[in-house]
Lab assay of single mutants.
Amino acid sequence: CHSECLGNCSQPDDPTKCVACRNFYLDGRCVETCPPPYYHFQDWRCVNFSFCQDLHHKCKNSRRQGCHQYVIHNNKCIPECPSGYTMNSSNLLCTPCLGPCPKVCHLLEGEKTIDSVTSAQELRGCTVINGSLIINIRGGNNLAAELEANLGLIEEISGYLKIRRSYALVSLSFFRKLRLIRGETLEIGNYSFYALDNQNLRQLWDWSKHNLTITQGKLFFHYNPKLCLSEIHKMEEVSGTKGRQERNDIALKTNGDQASCENELLKFSYIRTSFDKILLRWEPYWPPDFRDLLGFMLFYKEAPYQNVTEFDGQDACGSNSWTVVDIDPPLRSNDPKSQNHPGWLMRGLKPWTQYAIFVKTLVTFSDERRTYGAKSDIIYVQTDATNPSVPLDPISVSNSSSQIILKWKPPSDPNGNITHYLVFWERQAEDSELFELDYCLKGLKLPSRTWSPPFESEDSQKHNQSEYEDSAGECCSCPKTDSQILKELEESSFRKTFEDYLHNVVFVPRKT
Results as ranks from 00 to 15, higher is better:
K103R: 11
K103A: 05
V104P: 03
L107T: 14
L107K: 03
L108R: 12
L108S: 09
G110R: 09
I114Y: 03
D115W: 11
S116N: 01
S116I: 01
V117T: 08
T118P: 03
S119N: 15
Q121Y: 03
G125S: 05
T127L: 15
N130Y: 02
G131M: 03
I135L: 03
G139W: 03
N142L: 14
L143W: 14
L153T: 13
E155D: 08
E155G: 09
E155K: 06
E156R: 03
S158F: 14
G159C: 06
S166R: 01
Y167T: 06
V170K: 08
L172G: 03
F175Q: 00
F175C: 02
R179Q: 10
L180H: 10
G183N: 06
G189Q: 00
Y191H: 10
Y191K: 08
S192M: 04
R202I: 04
L204F: 14
L204Q: 04
W205L: 15
S208R: 12
I214T: 03
L219M: 04
F220M: 15
F220K: 13
S230H: 04
E231Q: 15
E231C: 15
I232P: 06
H233F: 02
H233C: 12
E237T: 10
T241F: 06
T241K: 14
G243K: 14
E246K: 06
A251V: 08
A251H: 13
G256W: 03
G256Q: 06
L265P: 13
F268T: 02
S269A: 08
T273L: 07
K277P: 01
L279Y: 12
W282L: 03
W282S: 01
P284E: 11
P284K: 03
W286F: 04
P288H: 08
F290K: 00
D292F: 00
D292V: 02
L294I: 12
G295K: 15
M297Q: 09
M297Y: 00
L298A: 03
D315G: 11
A316S: 13
C317V: 10
C317D: 09
G318K: 14
S319M: 14
N320R: 14
N320M: 13
S321P: 03
S321N: 09
V325S: 13
V325G: 12
P330R: 14
L331Y: 05
P336S: 09
S338M: 13
P342H: 06
G343N: 14
L345K: 08
P351I: 07
P351K: 06
W352Q: 15
T353F: 07
Q354P: 08
Y355Q: 00
I357P: 00
V359S: 04
T361E: 04
F365Q: 12
D367Q: 15
E368V: 15
R369N: 10
T371W: 11
I378P: 04
I378T: 11
Y380G: 04
N387R: 12
S389P: 00
I395P: 00
K409P: 10
